[in-house]
Simulated scan of single mutants.
Amino acid sequence: MRLPVGSRQEILLHRRAVAITIVLVLAALTVMVLSILTGTYNISAADALGALLRGAGSELDRFIIIDQRLPRALAAVLVGAMLALSGAIFQSLSRNPLGSPDIVGFTTGASTGGLLAILLVSASSTFQIGAGTILGGFATATFVALITLRRGIGGDNLILAGIALSEMLSAANNYLISRAPLQSAEVAKAWQYGSFNAISWGQVRPLLIAAIMLLPQVLWFVRPATMLEMGDDAATSLGVRVGRIRGAMLGYGVVLAAVCVAVSGPIGFLALAAPQLARRLSRSAGVAMVASAAMGALLLSGADFLAQRLLSPFQIPVGLVSAALGGIYLIWLLVLPSDRGGQAC
């Protein structure tokens, strides 16, 4: 199957990858609907559906369904898709399954920018925190790029430099929280866990705008990323401007991760696991980017569903659930034989 992108480019689509992507999207939408129609608030699924579609029911019913459950479910799907896509971009850049933004330090750098905005500027709006996370993410990416410039932005160089910088930034983040006033430190610490517990339309609207602008852009990276998987020399011979494409992919992945951190706080392991799970299910060569986004949406919406239900009526930060699932995923990787491949959509 071929998908035209622009007037001169086409993307080769693997039939199994397309089928798996459709199944993952439908599963994510199913979890999203369940999250909206069920919960600790005593309202039947039929009444919840009526409040959602027709605005029926009491004012409290509409508030719970439309102003609490719907933005939370939508945020989980969007953040999951964007984080997973960021992970797919960085795994393609590094040609390493560990090349996710949380491992290579970009999520930690975005967290540092967000913490500086929260603690030093007393930022509270999504825009202010988002500006801090994007600046922090790009500062980290720039520093990593400068460290790895002589040997090329990619491969193990990117992983090692990112891990080293991530550890230093984690120490800086903990220091910032330890020196902050108690109330500010509690807010910052809660944000660092990664959570949708206090999500609202004020945070979801800019996230939705960012997703509409950013997610379709992945189609422009699939073809050159596929060529980069063959090596820099082969990609150059095929007309790919390697340095420019790597820089564009790096910036794109950083923005995706930073936007997600601004909305939910840092959520670990999702960007690491989703691309690899999508690749194994689709059986396509390399990291399947579109399928990765669908897998991320399903994983995070499912993790948030568990976070709301496991200790109901108490709600666990979804970042803790994703960390636990990430540990299970790493153990799974150790048990299963290794599998290598190239890049696919």
Results as ranks from 00 to 15, higher is better:
I199C: 03
G162N: 05
A278H: 08
G251R: 00
V33Y: 07
P71T: 00
S322T: 15
S94H: 07
R241K: 15
V121A: 15
A164Q: 02
A344I: 08
G326L: 07
Q192K: 10
L214G: 02
E229Q: 14
D67W: 09
S100F: 04
P266V: 09
V263Q: 08
T126V: 14
R8G: 11
V290S: 11
L119M: 04
V259I: 10
I147R: 10
L281W: 12
T112M: 13
G105Y: 00
L325K: 07
A285I: 06
L37T: 12
F143L: 14
A303M: 07
V254Q: 00
W191S: 03
V222W: 04
C260W: 04
S86Y: 02
T40V: 13
Q343G: 13
E186G: 09
L219R: 11
V263R: 09
S86A: 13
A303W: 08
P206S: 05
V321A: 06
I212S: 11
A145K: 07
Y329A: 02
V33M: 14
R340K: 13
L24G: 03
R16W: 08
G302E: 06
L115I: 07
G132W: 01
S124G: 11
I147F: 09
Q343T: 12
L320S: 10
M82S: 10
L98G: 03
A131M: 13
A19E: 14
L272P: 02
S86K: 03
R246M: 00
G113F: 01
L219K: 08
V187F: 12
F138I: 03
A288N: 09
S322C: 10
L228T: 00
C260Y: 03
L26W: 10
N96F: 10
L135N: 06
S338L: 09
P101D: 09
L238A: 08
S170F: 04
I89K: 01
L325C: 11
